[in-house]
Amino acid sequence: MSKPVTMKVPASTANLGPGFDSLGLALNLYLTLEITPASEWHFEHRSPMLAGLPNDKTHLVYQAAEKTANAYGGTLPPLHIVMDSEIPLARGLGSSAAAIAAGIELADRYANLQLSDQEKLKIGNQMEGHPDNIGASLFGGMVAGVSFGEEADIVQLPVPDVDVVVLIPSYEVKTSDARSVLPESFTRQKAVEASAVANVLLAALSAGHYELAGKLMEKDQFHEPYRLQLIRELPEARKLAHEAGAYATVISGAGPTILTFAPKGTASDIISVFRDQFTDCDVKQLDVHTGRIQYT
């Protein structure tokens, strides 16, 4: 039997407050796949986080790989894949985007597609419906993207020079539930103001003006005001983080994970107060994953 190839795909956080369905940041929690040629497709799952996922072609990784191969005229050979994960499911850390990115990469490598970045993004955006998480998982670092239905565009941005802390509650929030509480439309005045907040946030992050960026991260009008009912820890976490010197505390993706940006070297203070207050939550300092999906 040939030696397995190992693929590591990063987690991601999306929105960063007002960058709704557009801003994404890759983080150093990983979905790991050990890939071996086989006579038929089969998935094994080592991590308890992956318990209950299918082991056949109904698996999301296979679905993404098949869609990619079919779209670009390739043939997928059968593979045996052993999966492990540090990315909790349904917590707003891009677990589905990581799985889709893995499938796209599998198809590219094993069906010998030689896809461009734009072709990979196109498939990922079609499956996710927005390019923020998938762009971060595929390409690393911080990204800003826009979806036009079947097509998408993305730009990689300078990585923020901040400490990153995540507070991960024990409960799940399904993306569909988090979207169901959002309004169907906004007034023109509110849409203009909310878009302007996102624009200036992006400029402030790119320029390294983190105090201003933090202020704007907490002024989202697109989704956070409506999702507070689903994520009960956010108001207290934001208060405590500010008292500890943080720039901003916001919902990570659709939640319930809470993301904090803080000045370099201050993460330990925030972690300490979070662990004292939220004893049933997991608290971690994370780094930004830069670079592409890793193979060994």
Results as ranks from 00 to 15, higher is better:
150 E>T: 11
179 R>Y: 04
194 A>Y: 10
218 E>W: 04
202 L>F: 02
151 E>D: 13
169 P>Y: 00
215 K>A: 13
211 E>T: 12
166 V>Q: 06
209 H>V: 12
175 T>V: 01
159 V>N: 12
183 P>H: 02
189 Q>P: 13
195 S>F: 06
155 V>A: 10
170 S>G: 14
190 K>R: 15
185 S>D: 05
146 V>C: 11
169 P>Q: 07
148 F>Q: 14
216 L>A: 04
220 D>F: 03
164 V>S: 07
217 M>T: 00
183 P>C: 00
207 A>I: 01
221 Q>Y: 14
166 V>S: 06
175 T>F: 10
184 E>Y: 01
180 S>T: 09
191 A>W: 04
150 E>R: 11
205 L>V: 05
154 I>C: 04
196 A>W: 05
200 V>D: 07
165 V>W: 05
188 R>I: 14
159 V>H: 02
179 R>D: 01
187 T>G: 15
194 A>K: 05
176 S>W: 07
213 A>I: 04
216 L>C: 07
217 M>N: 08
155 V>E: 02
219 K>F: 09
147 S>N: 10
213 A>F: 06
152 A>Q: 07
199 N>G: 12
149 G>S: 05
200 V>L: 13
173 V>F: 06
211 E>K: 14
179 R>T: 06
170 S>Q: 15
159 V>R: 04
181 V>R: 02
160 P>I: 00
180 S>A: 13
172 E>Y: 12
187 T>F: 05
206 S>W: 02
169 P>H: 07
195 S>R: 01
200 V>H: 02
170 S>W: 13
209 H>Q: 12
163 D>M: 05
